[in-house]
């Protein structure tokens, strides 16, 4: 681990610790009632209960989390594949972008949750409705981000390879690398969006299995189990943060992080 990355890690840990201390202080101060703000110790207990094998599956937060994350990740992967394909095609030529961009911008402006009831009916209230809503919400984000990245790829570099007579295979590889930074940016944007949509759709309509973070949060809210509600918030937040850190680390490893700074 380099000195810089160790320093970043220490700062991140300090920020988390400060946030936790503030939360604890607010919860214990009594300024905000327990029905609105759970005590972090109670939340930790609720999370610890997730590892209790004696507890029924429905009572374990992590069982719900697994189901929700699988839905979110499935939608995210499909959206990435579809969105990147659309984005690369859209960014290939300026006229293609001019033609296609309004369509994708329009789709991005429409809240995907509006399509959820239709998809529920179309897919007989099954899992594809949840995944499909995530895909609909993420594809425009990915497509537009990747298309802009492709349009903004360095002309100097592609021209240089043409002048030097570099083989097509190498030129194709460098073209892929040129668009990779925008793919990573799109992946990070879409990941947080997919988590949001997954939880919201589960809150709107509980999946048949009944196993879903959104459904658990809704139940906890209605029965004033604030500690469970906050446990859901913590799990979603931690997963989103961890996934972002992993994607950034891969980006750094590939040397793509500084791609727009030169």
């Amino acid at each position: 681990m380099t000195k810089g990355s160790a320093g970043r890690l220490a700062l991140a840990a300090a920020t988390f610790a400060a946030g936790l201390a503030l939360w604890l202080a607010l919860a214990r101060s009594g300024w905000i009632g327990r029905t609105l703000l759970a005590d972090p110790i109670d939340v930790a207990r609720a999370l610890a209960g997730a590892f209790d094998p004696a507890a029924p599956p429905g009572a374990r937060v992590l069982v719900h989390a697994e189901a929700t994350l699988v839905r979110a990740l499935a939608g995210w992967v499909i959206a990435l594949l579809v969105g990147m394909g659309c984005g690369v095609a859209l960014g290939a030529r300026a006229w293609a972008y001019v033609l296609g961009e309004p369509l994708f911008e329009l789709a991005r402006a429409v809240p995907p949750i509006l399509a959820f009831p239709l998809l529920l009916v179309a897919f007989d209230f099954g899992e594809p409705a949840y995944v499909g809503t995530i895909v609909l919400g993420c594809v425009p984000i990915v497509a537009i981000t990747v298309a802009r990245g492709r349009l903004g790829a360095s002309r100097e570099r592609s021209e240089l390879l043409a002048v030097f007579g570099v083989p097509r295979s190498v030129r194709a590889l460098t073209a892929i690398m040129e668009v990779m930074p925008s793919c990573f940016l799109a992946a990070r944007l879409a990941l947080s969006t997919s988590l949001v949509i997954a939880v919201v759709t589960e809150m709107v309509f509980t999946p048949r299995s009944g196993i879903a973070l959104g459904a658990l949060a809704k139940e906890a809210q209605m029965s004033f189990e604030t500690d469970v509600y906050f446990a859901v918030v913590v799990v979603v937040g931690l997963f989103g943060y961890a996934a972002n850190v992993v994607l950034r680390a891969v980006e750094r490893r590939l040397g793509l992080e500084r791609s727009t700074s030169t």
């Binding site: 360095s154 570099r157 590939l254 040397g255 030169t262």
Partner: peptide, 8 residues
């Protein structure tokens, strides 16, 4: 300045 690949 733009003719070098940032990742290389």
């Amino acid at each position: 300045a733009q003719s070098f690949w940032p990742w290389a």
